[in-house]
Simulated assay, not measured.
Amino acid sequence: MIPGYAQVQEAGAFLKRKGVMSRKAGSFSVSPLAIGTHLGEMNRVDSLLYQEAILCAVDRGINMVDTALNYRGMRSERDIGECLTEAAAAGHLKREEIVISTKAGILPGDIDAALVPKNYLREVLLKREIIQPDEIQVLNHYKHVLSPSYFEFAIGESRKHMNIETIDLYFVHNPEYSLIPLGEREFYRQLTRLFVKLEDEAALGHIRHYGIATWDGLISSPEAVGYLSLERIITCAREAGGEEHHFVFIQLPLNPDKPEARQFQNQRVKGRWLTVIEAAHELGIHVTVSSPLQAGAVPEKKQALSTVLQTEGILAAMVGMKRKEHVEENIEAILI
């Protein structure tokens, strides 16, 4: 496995050489634009396109890659692993220069093993007793877990797929999918237990930081089913890891159809109602953005991306870029 993890100085120097903007997030420097790997077919054709796009993105100065264990039946992580291994072997990239983020919580399938999610659950997760049947929460067509043993397994799988010893940023993926069926009291109890496991994984050097990647949870009304209180989540992190806990990131959508993160004062912190971006700043949390271009549906893409990247309090925006042409199209937004 490739040793090391992203660093402030090395990543900052890399971005300076490439002529792109650099933002600091505690222990590393990051480009404001990250390459996302969510959409696409689970086949070799799209894998080759993604690998070409990832290598192009890194060459042009995008030093953050975002993925998840369940993306494209585990192929997205494996594609990233091939790119990192190739670039490191050729001397084109140092591990300290690039930020890798991934996620788990939504139960995955494994396309290379010909296992769709329901079969992966039965043949791998349940058969090997990685999770227990009563730990599975079902919401619509999603199956979600907060089981510490599952996350220990998932982190190991992600590290293996990407051929890296340490994941820079690890997200609990859409935790609201467990919140809704569990109810608030049990959800926050289980979340604290999971954070204890993630603190252990950080102590082992398997991850550097962790957080939550959400869809509606952090931007919905406090009265809504599935609403996530950032202040309460940070309380869970403090109970799990003390004041030096490793929960320092969130991910949420921000685009013309979902402007709530910067407009809706729905998060209560120290008795004041704030937007989630303001609340994150108050609590010392970095904010990353998903779906800034609504999977390409935004008509004025350049303007929409520029607006997100220039929003005060946003560290980086994850943009799905399956082709190198998409990289070339979007890179202008972060050139110095």
Rank of each mutant, 00 (worst) to 15 (best):
E129M: 07
Y188F: 14
H141I: 11
E135I: 06
E152L: 10
H144P: 00
S158R: 11
E157D: 00
V138N: 05
L179N: 07
F195Q: 05
V196C: 08
L125A: 08
I136E: 04
D134W: 09
F171V: 02
K127E: 10
I136V: 13
L179V: 06
P148K: 03
N163D: 13
S149F: 07
L126Y: 02
H173E: 06
G183R: 02
Q132N: 13
F171G: 01
Y188W: 12
S178I: 01
D134R: 12
N174H: 09
I167D: 10
F187S: 08
H161T: 01
F153P: 02
Y170K: 03
H141D: 14
Q190H: 11
R185Q: 10
Q190N: 11
E135C: 09
L182S: 06
V138Y: 03
V145G: 02
G156A: 11
T166I: 15
P133Y: 05
R128Y: 12
H173F: 04
H161Y: 07
P133C: 07
S147P: 05
G156C: 09
G156E: 12
I167T: 09
K143V: 01
F171D: 04
K143T: 06
Q190V: 01
L194K: 13
E129K: 15
F171C: 02
R128H: 13
I136Y: 07
P148G: 04
F187W: 11
L139W: 02
Y150T: 08
V196A: 05
I180H: 04
F171I: 03
I167S: 09
E152T: 14
S178W: 00
F171K: 04
E152K: 14
F151Y: 13
L126T: 01
I130N: 07
H173D: 12
D168Q: 11
N140Y: 14
L125C: 06
I130F: 07
R193T: 13
H161P: 00
I167E: 09
Y177V: 05
L169Y: 04
I164T: 15
E123P: 03
K197Y: 03
L146G: 02
V145I: 12
F195P: 03
V196R: 13
F187G: 10
L169I: 14
L126W: 00
H173Y: 09
Y170V: 02
V172L: 12
L182P: 03
L146Q: 03
E152G: 13
P148Q: 04
H144A: 14
V172G: 07
Y142K: 08
